[in-house]
Write a protein that binds this DNA or RNA. Structure first.
Lengths: 112, 112
DNA sequence: CATGCATATGAGTGAATGCTGATATTATAT
DNA sequence: ATATAATATCAGCATTCACTCATATGCATG
């Protein structure tokens, strides 16, 4: 086991990855990435049950990845740091690199 | 079809986050990020047991985040896509508001 | 061959996680 | 005060996960 006494920030990074490492939570993050949305919005956008959405929102709140703003009976969720979506996009580009990408294609044919 | 493609990309992205969402595995990724290393190297660098390192390496292999090269009795592990470390660094900068956690980590474990 | 080193695998276990159904809370309107 | 809509929380369950111990495999050398 690694030394955990020192908070090197890696723990927090790992916790963040763990929170994002769920299909439903990642979907919620994407839904609220551009504009803040109410819980009902998220329910409709994802098709998840109200309880399940609330369950995952709590996890995202605890990880401080999202923040809330109350407006009457509605609670709007948004990314705590909007830049988060940028780095997630970067990640997606690296992980899901498509074979049909021009760059990839050129690399492939240049290898014979 | 476009939506389905995007969805499968999210699944893979979520799986990748999940694999990286473990402190020990993230540590291993950082250890091999610059140069390929043998299992023994990783054991010494992290202080984890041989079995635990092998256990996590299997998870990283299954996620295709790392690849192996055999050299006699040694097996060298390296990142399948070296760019992965760049995006992890980006992530770290956004999540923790400081730079070069990897540097701190490597310094920390080398003092062990 | 046998021995030793490097690494992987399998079974088992306790803990964490994702999910659900029921219930509670909060806000608005009648 | 009652009703209703929006959202959160709790308790329980099934599954996954991280971990360890023991054992197996592969590779080199005597």
């Amino acid at each position: 086991m690694l030394i955990k006494t020192m908070d090197s920030g890696i723990e927090k990074l790992a916790r963040t990855f763990k929170v994002l490492g769920d299909y439903n939570r990642l979907g919620i993050v994407m839904v609220i990435s551009r504009v803040s949305r109410t819980v009902t919005d998220i329910i409709n956008a994802t098709g998840m049950s109200q309880t399940l959405v609330s369950f995952h929102l709590r996890a995202l709140r605890r990880a401080e990845l999202v923040t809330t703003r109350r407006e009457g009976p509605f609670i709007y969720y948004s990314l705590t740091n909007p830049s988060l979506m940028d780095v997630i996009d970067n990640f997606s580009m690296i992980i899901n690199k498509k074979v049909s990408d021009k760059k990839n294609f050129l690399e492939t044919i240049s290898r014979g």
